[in-house]
Amino acid sequence: MRHETRIAVGPVQFRIGSDWAEPIAALERLYAVYPKDGMRPADATVRLFAARPWRRWLRPSVHIGGDFVVPDALPLPLPMGLLAAEMAMNLQVALGWRRHMLLHASAVARDGRALIMSGESGSGKSTLAALLGEGGDWRLMGDEFTLIDPADGDALAFPRAVSLKNEAIAEVAARVDAARLGPLLAGTPKGDIRHLVPRADAIAAMHEPARPALLLFPRFGGESAVEPMGEGEAFVRLTEASTNYVALGEAGFAALTRLVRETPAFAISYPDSEAGIGLVEHLWAEA
């Protein structure tokens, strides 16, 4: 690869190579404040390569690849190289990580205890985590993935740049320093996207584990509602939300049964972010 960089997010050291300079420069701007250790071996390799050698000049289009390749990954036009890099980084972690149980969930921490929010795309888990991470004493652990240590059950952070989508962009942008926002990527296959660099204290604390204290399954839309969730249902939902549960075998089974037994779980519905944050704070106070 002609251009290369290394980025550490939580326990994962990425090596990202590209046929073009632009996506690497965009990544380096976005991850400028993250700690760098160029000597550490890479855990995951990401490659952004030209679909055909001549396309680099004619119709620049980014294919993504790495240790794990998804054959039908979309080629994206070069201005979306940053999105391609982010998708590839997620993919390599989702498919390749074995040291921890990986949950497709956002998380924030307070006083060494973690609130974990799991839900489909559109559930608002990322926006809630991003907003909580901006105000007050919550530390953003991650907007997309949360890692659970099978040895002791602790949650570990994966604070990649937050991927704000569509309406969430304006809502969060109004509250943060513009210097922490990446370029607006309009009209991507996932709609409009803008990245938010987590607060410096969240990045500095990214290696600090937190004890899971509350599991929420948010759903954006409808009246405010809270429904306690049994251990069995939480277990089923989290096996579905884990990208490597099957690969971890009995270690994953043990980690997940422990998590749902020790952590109270609720499904919540909320009509807007303010109401969602209110519900979170209320449940947290009781947890």
């Binding site: 049994g230 251990e231 069995g232 249902e233 277990f235 089923v236 096996t239 549960y245 099957v246 075998g249 009995e250 089974f253 043990a254 049964t257 749902v260 037994r261």
Partner: peptide
């Protein structure tokens, strides 16, 4: 088998097939 009761459900991990059953 590793058997873990989870409220109304019971999760079973079969070490031979590596499958989880509820």
């Amino acid at each position: 088998l590793r058997i873990e009761p989870l409220g109304e459900l019971t999760a079973l991990f079969d070490r031979r097939s590596m499958q989880t059953h509820l």
